[in-house]
């Protein structure tokens, strides 16, 4: 991916905020990315289109899964200096609490970094970072660099 390849060529860190803007699905979800040290933090403001259950209203489970998956991928890109977007192999999302109609955040860490595959744990939270509303654990394939 050009944005990633350019950063690698110039020996510069990847602009994770710009990455969110050039990936259409991330722009569609309204996801923004920033760095907290070596940790990528995603932020997704509430939007009515993200609702799955209109009665509560609650975020759609798929939105929660999408944000966790994105957090895992972007952290994998950042940590491995990948020039291609890692591909999901498998993951499990545990739904711990209802995703309410407020801003949602996500972060991830690489539990294991192999040459070809990374094992990533991701967490999603709203008001309280210590009380995640969903977590992900999964494997992502690093494309041949």
């Amino acid at each position: 991916m050009e944005l990633l390849a350019k950063a690698a060529r110039e020996g510069q860190p990847v602009d994770v905020a710009a990455l969110m803007a050039v990936v259409p699905y991330c722009a569609f979800l309204g996801v923004k990315a920033s760095l907290r040290g070596e940790e990528v933090v995603l932020e997704m403001p509430f939007d009515p289109k993200l609702v799955g259950n209109p009665i509560i209203p609650a975020l759609h489970g798929g939105v929660i899964g999408s944000l966790l998956e994105t957090a895992a991928i972007v952290q994998a890109i950042w940590s491995t200096r990948a020039v291609k977007i890692p591909k999901p192999v498998d993951f499990t999302v545990d739904y711990l609490r209802t995703g309410r109609a407020v801003t949602t955040y996500a972060k991830a860490r690489l539990a294991r970094q192999g040459r070809r595959v990374v094992n990533v744990h991701a967490e999603l939270w709203q008001e309280d970072e210590a009380r995640p509303i969903a977590t992900l654990r999964g494997h992502f394939l690093l494309a041949g660099q």
Partner: peptide
Amino acid sequence: SRKLIGNPDTGVLHGGAITAMLDH
């Protein structure tokens, strides 16, 4: 749909869009 693309180089859908459909 273009808005669901996850990889702008290839035009492949974001895994999250598939995840959302599977969840639903």
